[in-house]
Amino acid sequence: MALVQGKVLKIGSVIAAITRGLSSNAENIKKSVYISQSNDIYTNLALENWLYKNFDFSEHHVLLLTHNDPCVLIGNNQNPWVESNVHQLKNISKKGAKLARRIGAGPAVYQDEGNLNLTFFTAKDCYDPNYNMEIIKRALFRQFELRTKLTTSKDIMLRNKKVTDNSSFIGEDKAYQQCSLLVDVNKADLLEALKTESPVKPKDIFKHMNLVDENYRVSIGDVISAIGWEYMRTTPLSLSDGGKALINKQGGFHLVNPTDKWFPGLQEIRNELSKWDWIFGKTPKFTLNRSFPVPQRLMKNVDGICPEINITMIVENARIKDVTMFVPPGLSKSGFSGEIKVLTNLKGCKFSEDALKSLEDYCKNAASTDDKDKFVSDCVKQVMKSV
C-alpha cells in the first residue's frame, strides 16, 4: 500500500511540475495582431511565409489578418484545373481573379474583399487548431451574437453551413494554421470560380454561407476588431479569459506594410509564388483520356463499322508530356494514324490556353491541314477542356 501511495505522490508531483512549467511559459508568451495593408494574394502569401521563416514564436504568438482582391487559392498538391474554372477566372470581377498556390495543404477556396484570412503562428508544441477556432467562435458570439459550432474537421458552422475553410503548415519547431472566414463574399463569383463538383468533395461549396446572411450588420472591419481583441484577451496556452488586464500586457495591433523595406527579401518570395512554374508547374502528374466517334464523311475505304479513335494525354509539371491516338484496326485504311502532326506539335507545350490557341491556329491553316487533322485537333481541344 505504501508503495502504491509513493507512486501516486510521484505522479502527482510530476503533473504539478508540468502545470507550473506551462503556467510559467504562458506568462512569458506575448501576442500580437498584424494587419496587412496589401490586398494582393501573392504579397500576403509571401508575408505569411516570411513571418514563418524569420520569427521566433516560442515566446511571441502572432495572428496575421489579411484580405485579398478576387483570387482562387489552391493547396500545395492540388490540380488547378480540377479545383477551379481556370479559363473563367479572367472574367470574374472587373479585374479578373488571380490563381495562387499555397505552401501548405488545404482545400481550394475563392477569396475576395468580403473574405478575411486569419493565420495563427505559434511554436510547434503550442499548435492547437481547436484553440484557434474557439477564439473565432467566441469573438463572433461576443460581438455579433452569432452562435456557431465546431466540427471534428475544425470547420466553424453556422446554421449547418460552413463559414470557414482551413489549411495548415507544421514545421520542425513552429507551425501555423490559416483560416478563411466568409464575411460577405460574392457568391456568384465563388460559384463561377470553383468547380461545383470534385472527386473529393462533391458540391462542397454549396455548404457555405456568409456571416452577413445571418447578421447584416457584420463587416470586415468589425470582424477584424472583434477577433483581434478576443485573441489578445485569451491566455496563450488555455482558453481562459484574461480580460483587459491581459490585453494591456500584449503586443497590440500593428498595421504592416509588406514591402522589402519592412520585411527584407519579401519581394523575392512574392516573385517565386507568382511564377507559372509554382502556380501551375507544381501540379501533380495527371492523365486525360477520351474516345470520339469518327464522322462518316471521314471513313473512306471502310465499310460496315462505326469506329472510334481514343486520345490519351499525359500532363506532367503542367506540360504536355505525351499525346497518343489509338486507331482501331480497319480505320487506318481511311488514312488515320497515331502519329498525326497536330499531336506531335503539342508535346512539351504548357497545358494552357496557349496550347489551345495553337490548335485553333493550326486548324485555320486550311492549305496544310486536311479534314482528318481538323477533326483530331477538335478532339484534342475537347480532351483539354474536359478536366
Results as ranks from 00 to 15, higher is better:
Asp241Ile: 03
Glu134Val: 09
Cys71Glu: 02
Arg319His: 15
Arg138Asn: 12
Asn85Pro: 03
Cys349Val: 08
Gln5Arg: 09
Ser167Trp: 05
Phe120Gly: 09
Arg233Phe: 04
Arg319Thr: 15
Tyr42Asp: 02
Thr119Glu: 00
Phe351Leu: 05
Thr152Ala: 15
Thr152Asn: 15
Glu134Phe: 14
Ala26Leu: 06
Leu346Arg: 04
Ser23Gln: 10
Asp373Lys: 10
Gly330Met: 00
Leu63Phe: 01
Ser368Asn: 14
Gly75Phe: 03
Ser84Asn: 02
Asn54Phe: 06
His254Phe: 08
Val183Tyr: 00
Glu113Gln: 15
Lys161Tyr: 01
Ile220Gly: 04
His254Asn: 11
Gly228Pro: 14
Lys31His: 08
Ala100Arg: 02
Ser337Arg: 14
Trp81Phe: 06
Lys275Pro: 06
Lys124Thr: 11
Ile320Glu: 01
Thr43Met: 04
His61Ser: 13
Ser38Asp: 07
Asn160Ser: 08
Ser23Asn: 13
Val86Asn: 00
Cys349His: 09
Leu89Ser: 02
Leu150Thr: 10
Asp303Tyr: 13
Lys261Gln: 12
Glu59Met: 12
Asn271Arg: 05
Lys161Ala: 10
Gly338Asp: 08
Ser180Glu: 11
Pro129Val: 04
Tyr52Trp: 03
Ser13Lys: 15
Leu288Asn: 04
Leu150Gln: 11
Ile11His: 13
Arg319Trp: 08
Glu172Asn: 13
Ser358His: 10
Ser36Lys: 06
Asp165Asn: 14
Asp322Lys: 13
Thr312Met: 13
Ala188Leu: 09
Leu239Phe: 15
Ile29Thr: 00
Lys124Pro: 03
Arg20Asp: 13
Arg217Glu: 14
Lys201Cys: 11
Asn186Cys: 07
Phe263Cys: 01
Asn79Gln: 00
Ile309Gly: 01
Val223Thr: 04
Ile74Met: 00
Thr196Gln: 15
Gly251Phe: 08
Asp204His: 11
Ala17Gln: 09
Asp303Trp: 06
Gln178Gly: 13
Cys71Ile: 02
Glu83Gly: 01
Lys203Pro: 00
Cys363Glu: 13
Ser332Pro: 01
Pro295Gln: 01
Asp155Glu: 09
Thr259His: 05
Ala26Ile: 06
Ile170Glu: 12
Leu191Glu: 14
Asp222Thr: 07
Tyr362Ser: 07
Gly221Thr: 07
Pro284Trp: 05
Ile220Pro: 04
Ile18Ser: 00
Asp370Glu: 02
Ser153Trp: 09
Gly348Val: 04
Ile92Cys: 02
Pro202Lys: 04
Ile35Met: 11
Ile18Thr: 06
Glu308His: 12
Ile11Pro: 05
Val62Thr: 08
Leu146Val: 08
Ile11Cys: 09
Ile309Trp: 05
Val212Trp: 01
Val342Gly: 07
Asn28Phe: 13
Glu48Val: 03
Arg147Gln: 10
Thr312Glu: 11
Asp322Gln: 13
Leu255Val: 12
Asn25Ile: 08
Phe169Asn: 06
Leu64Tyr: 06
Lys249Asp: 00
Lys203His: 13
Cys379Pro: 03
Glu83Val: 00
Lys300Met: 07
His60Gly: 07
His87Cys: 10
Arg217Lys: 14
Arg20Tyr: 08
Ile247Asp: 06
Phe144Arg: 00
Asn117Met: 15
Ser36Gln: 01
Asn132His: 03
Glu214His: 12
Glu316Asp: 15
